[in-house]
């Protein structure tokens, strides 16, 4: 199978920070807002380079979303950032009215998404955010898989005219996608072509899916791995073509089952290519304290669980 090299572990939020700075240099309309999480969102470099285009909002996310929409109406391209839970669940109605229904060019920068936020525990770990954002008409939902892709997705989000939910994480994880590959919104990236089973993954679980595929290869199973970096709009054609070829699909995501990528893919396949499926996700429960690695294993969100699910779906 195609080899992916980890060029050195990095956090995806730092990819966002680098991408934001680049986007800011390329377009003077780009502005950044945060609710007292400048450091956590890796906005320091942008704030230092463009102090007049950085807006500290204090611990007031609802206001931040409204301010961002106002800035967008005047022609700015605002990136409003906080932890995933606080830039979705806490401000859902504000996003719905001012960003989605309001059709404003706001980018919601969502860091520390999923269970890998780790030690802070369930109040800060959202496993529901994709469901919430997916539900909003017109909202683009992007969940890149590593540092490089997050950087490139941030640059792409700045160029796209419309609301974007950009999801990334806290821990350092393998960095393995091309450094400067332009990110295509709405494209599912086929990471490895296979014929026996399809593994669809998003975010941190793409690397895990590749590890699972390697393990499966040693057992003579050739797995196709697809990185769904854009969850909405979904690249249905790539997914359907793969399902028709392999006749078995696993969907892996750092998100709960309700409203996640798994349910989304299931809906597409039910309509266009009914295929046996297995899901690797957080189920229907809250997170808890622990290291990211411990939690991923405990919640079944790693390569071992993905490989197991792949074999299971092949036997159905």
């Amino acid at each position: 199978m195609k080899k992916y090299i980890d060029t050195g572990k990095k956090d995806t939020r730092s990819g966002f920070g680098v991408g934001l700075l680049e986007a800011g240099k390329a377009d003077p309309r780009v502005v950044a807002l945060t609710a007292d999480l400048k450091g956590s969102l890796k906005m320091d470099a942008f704030a230092a380079e463009f102090p007049d285009r950085f807006v500290q909002c204090g611990i007031a996310e609802a206001n931040m979303v409204g301010v961002a929409s106002g800035l967008a109406i005047t022609g700015k391209i605002p990136f409003a950032g906080s932890f995933a839970e606080f830039i979705t669940g806490r401000v859902y109605d504000q996003i719905r009215q001012e960003v989605a229904y309001g059709h404003t060019n706001v980018k919601l920068a969502s860091s520390h998404a999923g269970i890998t936020l780790g030690e802070d525990g369930a109040t800060h770990q959202t496993m529901e955010d994709i469901a919430l954002m997916r539900a909003l008409p017109g909202m683009v939902v992007i969940n890149p898989c590593d540092f490089n892709q997050t950087k490139n997705a941030t640059i792409a989000a700045a160029k796209y005219d419309g609301p974007v939910y950009l999801r990334f994480g806290r821990p350092s994880v393998p960095n393995f996608t091309p450094e400067d590959e332009p990110f295509e919104i709405g494209k599912a990236y086929v990471m490895n072509e296979g014929k026996d089973v399809t593994i669809i993954a998003t975010g941190h679980l793409v690397w895990e899916a590749l590890q699972a595929a390697e393990a499966l290869e040693s057992e003579g199973i050739c797995a196709e791995v697809i990185n769904v970096a854009t969850i909405k709009p979904l690249d249905e054609a790539t997914i359907v073509a793969s399902a028709l070829k392999t006749k078995g699909v696993v969907v892996a995501e750092e998100h709960n089952s309700a409203g996640g990528l798994g349910e989304l893919v299931a809906g597409v396949l039910a309509r266009r290519a009914p295929t046996p499926m297995e899901m690797v996700n957080g189920g229907d429960r809250f997170g808890q304290s622990g290291t990211p690695k411990e939690l991923m294993a405990a919640y079944g969100l790693d390569a071992a669980h993905i490989a197991k699910a792949a074999k299971k779906v092949m036997n159905r």
């Binding site: 409204g66 301010v67 929409s69 106002g70 109406i73 022609g75 700015k76 504000q94 009215q97 001012e98």
Partner: peptide, 19 residues
């Protein structure tokens, strides 16, 4: 800008003013 869900317009207007 749309409105209806209450309490949000002051934030939007602040964004306009800042912009």
């Amino acid at each position: 800008q749309c409105s209806g869900s209450l309490g949000q317009g002051l934030s939007v207007a602040a964004g306009l003013a800042l912009g």
